[in-house]
Design a protein around this nucleic acid. Structure first.
Lengths: 188, 188
DNA sequence: GCCATGAGTGATTGAATACTCACATGTCCA
DNA sequence: TGGACATGTGAGTATTCAATCACTCATGGC
């Protein structure tokens, strides 16, 4: 049986993908410094030692997780743009915003971005990964929407405001200040 | 000589303030989980043991540092508003924005806010402190400027965009994407 | 001068952490 | 079928960290 369907062991590549996917939840909660490789291993259902077979060190793993999240955001924006009702910058940006709002109903993706930002301050490799991720994202949004600098900037400003709202759980508090920050932003 | 000027020892209250001020630099770099109390102690020029005389635990210290930063931001906004050229919401918000831009030429204040956000995700006490800080800040900005919800929201959206730019050092990179995110925002 | 009180520290502890290595077990092809 | 190679782990090591404690010295009121 040469087929992979009867294997008990995964291939290393499959495992790496599993780890990338499950590590999102780990890093989303406590960030780069606050998350241990033991925690990552537990969530992936493998031993801590094997994490180090799949990734050379914790930093590389974290950067890979961040890149993985960027890729998913990018994919969501593409899908959203494809569903846009018209091709004006406003229509496309609005559709992308909607798609992003949909995507981050799972808060973890967004929280990894936030923790990526935080870790970027002191960890050069993370900073590089974050810069690359945002560079591609900004260029994609600009290109796909045809929006002006100001429009694209506004798009990302709203995105970072979402980071704030979600990280504080401000969407779960009903108060004047939370209503002000939430107004017009959709995160159901 | 009952005066304090000849004391060699500080009062505990003075020390606490020193620690709060110097700990900003420590936490700004690596955040709540990434910063050790040894580092905080070193920067304050005291022993690590004494940190625990001044604050019951690391979490309380961090929350106090965050509150300290909020107070400084608030003070800067007040001073900015006082210098506003006119009393229209636009004028006041613009003056506040300028004052904020001035304030965060020292990146540490801003970075503590970012790391406060990050730690708020998993640490309830931090989340409470951050919520309280933003609640007061939003209400202050609303009250002092008389701006609409949308205007106030925009003010904070630009603020969080600054977090992103500074945390990635995007203001030190000259590229199309950084120019887009930076456009019209002043952080000299 | 004496001593109660407060400022400040060195030494330590027990738990966690990133990372390693020797070893076991599964897979697949000649 | 055997053996080369890949998947996977248990049991570490050395280090770091938050928190504690017993202790020393300085200050100021009496």
């Amino acid at each position: 049986m040469s087929t992979t369907s009867r294997r008990r062991l995964s291939t290393a590549e499959e495992r790496r993908e599993t780890v990338l996917a499950t590590a999102i939840g780990a890093f989303a909660a406590r960030g780069y410094f606050g998350t241990s490789t033991v925690d990552v291993a537990k969530r992936a259902g493998i031993s801590q030692a094997y994490v180090y077979r799949l990734f050379p060190d914790k930093e590389t793993l974290f950067v890979a997780v961040v890149a993985h999240c960027f890729a998913r955001v990018r994919a969501a924006l593409e899908a959203g743009a494809a569903r846009a009702d018209g091709s004006s910058p406003e229509a496309v940006l609005s559709a992308m915003g909607l798609a992003y709002a949909e995507l981050i109903r799972d808060r973890d993706l967004l929280l990894v971005q936030l923790h990526g930002q935080a870790a970027a301050v002191s960890e050069p490799a993370v900073r590089e990964g974050m810069r690359a991720g945002y560079a591609r994202l900004v260029e994609y949004v600009r290109g796909a929407s045809g929006g002006s600098d100001a429009e694209v900037q506004r798009f990302f400003a709203v995105g970072t405001l979402c980071h704030l709202v979600v990280s504080l759980g401000a969407d779960e508090v009903d108060a004047p200040w939370t209503r002000t920050l939430n107004e017009g932003i959709r995160h159901p």
